[in-house]
């Protein structure tokens, strides 16, 4: 049986301590700049904060994974290199990377630090994963959220590194690291700036009939009736019309969140080494609840007890949830 580590989000130093206290095996975080894919205002760490966080986590036997998982545009590579140098100096346990140039730099300059391949690298086949393992000594791959459990089981047999998968949180629809939708509408890039549907470009417009539009950079991403709760305008979760779909429909996906708790026993049995909980932008109380519940469930399953899956399912109660691609190919 695998270790089934719980990899937990740490958007702030307080969230990091909360996740560690709630039983995280590892936390992942980033600096306050474009070097990570959650470059949101008010989130992330200064080098001083990261130094304290590493000490705190290590004292409680938790690892710290530093996300350097964006793609530096030409001419700005030094920012990513400095982040890797700083992370190494502060004693982080691994870097989560996507860009080949960044991976190559760390492999050559800091070979003692583990490299994890970010979901942003979109390595979805054994061959792609082996390319990164053989080129940069990658020790773990974070799989895209597009594979079924039997497919993950098969991949595991064909690769020389550990597997981490998302288990809970925001449900990305597009292949990560290949999406320029936000840049198309706002001029800020998910790949280069770490920004997705930025709050600074969001506004809500109330109409005379009581309906409400949610907009990104002036484009209407969704429109809600007076009795509906208006959602955040994420481009890939908006409603649009097509020539034969005159009624607006969710062209890509409904605004659901991923919750694989029912599949947890199967996923542990498939030999997945680590489970990632999404949500660096979430509150401390969210982090505490989700991490504690998954901690208890994983411990139960590993000890041969029946886990209280109902508690995990309840975490997304009231919201729509999905098992995404993991359960069936019909998702595609």
């Amino acid at each position: 049986m695998s270790l089934a580590e719980l990899i937990c989000p740490a958007g702030t130093p307080a969230a990091l301590r909360t996740a560690v206290d709630a039983g995280a095996d590892a936390v992942y975080c980033g600096f306050q700049d474009a070097t990570n894919a959650r470059n949101f205002p008010g989130l992330n760490f200064t080098p001083d904060e990261l130094a304290e966080a590493v000490v705190y986590a290590h004292a409680k036997d938790a690892k710290v994974l530093l996300a350097l998982n964006t793609y530096p545009p030409a001419g700005k590579v030094d920012l990513w290199r400095q982040a890797a140098d700083t992370g190494t100096r502060l004693g982080v346990d691994a870097f989560i990377v996507a860009d080949m140039g960044v991976a190559d730099y760390i492999a050559r300059t800091h070979p003692q630090v583990r490299l994890h391949l970010s979901v942003q690298a979109a390595a979805s086949s054994p061959e792609a994963i082996r390319y990164y393992c053989e080129s940069f000594g990658v020790k773990r791959v974070v799989l895209p959220r597009i594979l079924t459990i039997p497919e993950i089981r098969q991949i595991r047999r064909e690769i020389p590194c550990e597997i981490e998968t998302f288990i809970f949180g925001n449900h990305g629809l597009m292949v990560e690291g290949r999406c320029s939708l936000t840049n198309y509408l706002t001029g800020q890039s998910t790949n280069m700036d770490g920004i997705c549907s930025p709050a600074s470009e969001v506004d809500y417009a109330r109409h005379d009939d009581g309906s409400m539009s949610s907009r990104l950079a002036g484009f209407t991403i969704d429109c809600f009736g007076a009795d509906e709760m208006a959602g955040y305008p994420t481009i890939c979760k908006g409603r649009y019309t097509a020539p034969h779909r005159p009624e607006a429909y969710y062209a890509f996906e409904e605004p659901v969140s991923l919750n694989l708790s029912r599949l947890l026993p199967q996923m542990i049995d498939a030999g997945i080494h680590a489970f990632k909980i999404e949500g660096r932008q979430r509150s401390k109380s969210y982090v505490r609840n989700v991490v504690s519940a998954f901690r208890a469930a994983v411990d139960d399953i590993r000890a041969g007890r029946t886990a209280n899956i109902a508690d995990l399912v309840a975490l997304t109660e009231g919201q729509k949830q999905t098992q995404g691609a993991f359960e069936t190919k019909k998702w595609r």
């Binding site: 629809l173 597009m174 292949v175 939708l181 062209a251 890509f252 996906e253 691609a325 595609r332």
Partner: peptide
């Protein structure tokens, strides 16, 4: 602008890939 594992053409016609 993006690629996905899901086919959005099929989805628009209530089909799957």
């Amino acid at each position: 602008l993006a690629v996905s594992a899901r086919c959005y053409h099929a989805r628009a016609h209530d089909r799957t890939k």
